[in-house]
Simulated assay, not measured.
Amino acid sequence: MSWLLAAAEHTIVLAQTENYTPEAPPGVEGLKKLVRYLTWFVLLSGVAAIIFAGGKFAWEKWQGGMLESPKMVVGALIGGIVATSAGTIMNEIIRP
């Protein structure tokens, strides 16, 4: 055990790590604006999908047919959760 402690005292550090902070490249404002527009469109699409699925659910219930619209509602909700949390997910994956 003492040889392990002695070896640990004489180790050489070959690499040092630094915590770099991300910096936006020049001219990125247009890209940020595009991402904000796309986020808005995804949220609008999700709300429209939930409204459509709700209307279809009522129609299927009234007609007495097979209910397929609950799958649409669940799909729209899961898609909305993933789309709105994409930035948080990427920050957790990329962050050191």
Rank of each mutant, 00 (worst) to 15 (best):
M1G: 15
M1K: 06
M1C: 09
W3M: 13
W3E: 15
L5C: 14
A6C: 11
A6G: 09
A6D: 12
A7T: 05
A7P: 02
A7L: 13
E9A: 11
E9I: 06
E9M: 10
E9W: 05
H10Y: 08
H10Q: 15
T11H: 10
I12P: 01
V13R: 13
L14C: 09
L14S: 13
L14Y: 12
L14W: 07
A15Y: 15
A15I: 12
Q16G: 15
Q16C: 08
T17K: 12
T17F: 15
N19M: 08
Y20F: 12
Y20L: 14
T21C: 05
A24R: 09
A24G: 04
P25V: 01
P26N: 09
P26V: 13
P26S: 13
G27I: 02
G27K: 02
G27H: 02
G27D: 01
V28P: 00
V28Y: 13
V28M: 15
G30C: 01
G30S: 09
L31Y: 09
K32W: 09
L34A: 08
L34S: 12
L34Y: 08
V35E: 03
V35Q: 01
R36C: 06
Y37T: 14
L38N: 08
L38Q: 11
T39K: 10
W40D: 10
W40L: 10
F41E: 07
F41W: 06
V42T: 13
V42W: 06
L43T: 11
S45I: 06
S45K: 01
G46Q: 04
V47I: 15
V47T: 10
A48K: 01
A49Y: 02
I50F: 08
I50N: 04
I50H: 04
I50D: 04
I51W: 06
A53T: 04
A53G: 05
A53Y: 05
A53C: 08
A53D: 04
G55V: 07
G55S: 11
K56I: 11
A58G: 09
W59C: 08
W59Y: 14
E60K: 04
K61V: 11
K61T: 13
K61M: 09
W62K: 15
Q63M: 12
G64I: 02
G64M: 03
G64C: 00
M66A: 13
L67R: 11
L67W: 06
L67D: 09
S69P: 01
K71W: 11
M72W: 07
M72V: 05
G75H: 05
G75S: 09
A76Y: 00
G79V: 03
G79H: 06
G80C: 08
G80K: 01
G80A: 08
I81D: 00
I81N: 00
I81T: 07
A83Q: 00
T84K: 05
T84D: 02
S85W: 03
T88N: 12
T88P: 03
I89P: 00
I89E: 00
M90W: 08
M90R: 07
N91T: 07
E92V: 14
E92P: 07
E92F: 14
I94H: 13
I94D: 07
R95N: 10
P96Y: 04
P96H: 02
P96N: 05
